[in-house]
Design a protein around this nucleic acid. Structure first.
Lengths: 181, 181
DNA sequence: CTCAAATGAGACAATTATGTATCATGACTG
DNA sequence: CAGTCATGATACATAATTGTCTCATTTGAG
């Protein structure tokens, strides 16, 4: 049950920290439906949990993105499919943005790698003609992430279904980066 | 010097919490360039500081928005001008989103009021024909806020000047909500 | 069923953050 | 210049969080 418990802890932690970045370990344990002692059995301490969360966040995003874009017909299409898949994982993205994680070399390295891959992919999207010339790639990447967060937020607030939200996000992103109003 | 010191504390706090939501009062004090004791002289405690920050955030945003949109020719134009002004205040917006503030009635009330005003204004923008029919107003509002945050983030990361960033934000928003790619 | 492993609950210690009080110092005011 | 006021530094008290340990109970595999 170790693996299942740890997964439950990590998932609960993502949800909890997305809601309240200052949450205590006790709150995370309660959210996971376990005792605080059990949390300490699986993760040596706060720092350990944070590192595990960061690495899992990166891995989950990688996996979801690869899975979703397996049979994309273009980089532009891959972005659309990826956005759809990521809408459910925005709590992980939020965690990575919120928590200062530079002090763990492995996390920093993986984070940079993922970010570079996304930037490279966006460059390909540009080559496909989906991005206006005056828009920097860095802006396109940040907007992409912002749309994922916004879609997630819509769902969280009960203002849209995941499908609706990611469709809106894609529509906004595609039109917005194409640039002709 | 009391007023100036308090302003310094609040501004430093916005910057600090935007960077690290779990920052301690000691870190805030250091960022403000004062001793921890002095912080306690101006704000009774953590809760007191948080409340002051929330109220100031709301007020700063109100003021900046009103100031910037004073001679807007339309609601759509007001949104553009407001976005420009808000780019520098995204740390306040971030604070309001990050910190759970429902438990202070006055803050909750002001927050709801401001949010409603923004939603109402966005409805007017819709009437001016700037928003595609299939896009909910709630989405338009969230996207607006997301673009402000994104512009701020670009500036913070040194990838654009404030002017460039808010121009990109407006271009993306206008084209994105108009909806025709 | 039986046993080993995992767990929850609780007690406890250690660490960290918060809150309060005091005092000497420097700045500004009248 | 004298006095007041805010401040920084420091010490100290309290509270909250984190980390460790034990033990009775539960769970699950064999």
């Amino acid at each position: 049950m170790t693996d299942k418990t740890e997964a439950a802890i990590l998932n609960a932690a993502f949800a909890t920290y997305a809601e309240k970045p200052t949450a205590t370990l006790a709150e995370v344990a309660t959210a996971a439906g376990i005792g605080r002692a059990t949390l300490h059995r699986h993760f040596k301490g706060r720092e350990d949990l944070m590192t595990a969360l960061a690495l899992k966040a990166i891995k989950d995003i990688d996996t979801a993105f690869e899975e979703a874009t397996r049979d994309a017909e273009s980089y532009t299409d891959a972005m659309r499919l990826g956005l759809d898949a990521m809408t459910a994982l925005a709590d992980r993205q939020t965690f990575l943005e919120t928590e200062p994680l530079d002090h763990v070399p492995e996390v920093a390295r993986e984070y940079d790698r993922q970010r570079k891959e996304l930037t490279d992919a966006m460059e390909e999207v540009r080559k496909e003609g989906s991005i206006a010339a005056n828009i920097p790639t860095a802006w396109a990447v940040k907007t992409y992430e912002a749309m994922i967060y916004t879609a997630w937020s819509m769902v969280k607030d009960g203002e849209a279904t995941p499908k609706q939200a990611s469709a809106l996000a894609w529509q906004t992103l595609e039109s917005g980066l194409a640039g002709d109003a």
